[in-house]
């Protein structure tokens, strides 16, 4: 009896969540006529934002992968002094409100910022540039890759590394020839999640990089701005973002050797 009641409550609770998650997507889909949608897709405002978003998020994901690999490797090693601190620092962007991140970036890398003054010495000014968009996206998406990569490295059987070591393979070779190939699915999943996070970045971008069409107005900013002028453009941009996100998630699941359940927040499903 108790079991039935619990099961019913569970079904209701789960159902409520599914409605909460699913209904807004339907709302987006039925707001604009398909013919309208296709026409809107060709609008310069939409195309500019799409192009800028694709370029910046891909660049951000590449930077995160290249700079994140050594960091993830370091974190996957045995305990060392300051590891906890480092982990917290890496995790922070995942829980930090993006607006706070944007302000912090501005105060650090802005023209008057701590590091920004030094950059200015070399004639570099980050705010209001496409580069600033990438920096904001990198900041926000680092944890997703580092977590997944670290979990991937940690899950590689020690014996493979030891075998490689007995063959006198130097550490970088072990890393590149053994660790990276064996944890490739995790790395790809992490890179994918980082890319998606970069694609969706809004708060840090609008504060640190500002809003200018074709230069810093990515798709999420385009949605926000269009919402105040032309709701149909906002819906069109939103649907593109939804389609890209869904494609990414499905793609990651179909990945050969992929983990059931994309690793998010470092919880790799192995």
């Amino acid at each position: 009896m108790m079991g039935v009641a619990l099961r019913l409550a569970g079904t209701l609770a789960g159902g409520a969540l599914i409605v909460l998650l699913g209904l807004p997507l339907l709302g987006l889909m039925f707001r604009v006529e398909p013919s309208q949608l296709i026409r809107r897709l060709g609008e310069p405002a939409v195309l500019d934002a799409l192009r800028l978003s694709l370029i910046t998020s891909t660049a951000a994901a590449l930077v995160v992968v290249v700079l994140g690999l050594p960091l993830a490797y370091l974190l996957a090693q045995g305990p060392f002094r300051g590891r906890r601190l480092l982990e917290t620092l890496v995790d922070l962007p995942m829980v930090l409100p993006p607006t706070v991140a944007g302000l912090a970036l501005l105060l650090a890398f802005g023209r008057m910022g701590l590091a920004g003054r030094a950059l200015g010495f070399f004639g570099i000014s980050l705010p209001f540039t496409t580069l600033a968009v990438v920096v904001a996206q990198v900041f926000m998406s680092v944890p997703f890759f580092v977590h997944a990569a670290r979990a991937g490295f940690a899950s590689v059987d020690r014996r493979y590394r030891e075998a490689a070591a007995t063959l006198r393979a130097p550490e970088p070779v072990v890393f590149l020839r053994v660790l990276v190939p064996l944890s490739l699915p995790s790395l790809i999943a992490g890179a994918g999640m980082s890319w998606a996070r970069a694609l969706g970045e809004f708060g840090a971008t609008i504060i640190f990089a500002g809003n200018y069409p074709g230069r810093t107005q990515t798709m999420p900013l385009g949605v926000y701005v269009a919402l105040q002028q032309d709701v149909e453009v906002a819906v069109t941009l939103s649907l593109i973002l939804v389609a890209m996100s869904v494609t990414l998630l499905v793609g990651l699941r179909l990945l050969p050797g992929a983990i059931p359940g994309v690793p998010v927040a470092g919880v790799s499903g192995r």
Partner: peptide, 21 residues
């Protein structure tokens, strides 16, 4: 010369006040 189009007037003030614009 416009580098950013802000969503309200206070956001313009902030960017100038911080010396970024």
């Amino acid at each position: 010369n416009v580098v950013s189009q802000e969503e309200n007037v206070k956001a313009v003030v902030t960017k100038v006040q911080l010396g970024e614009a």
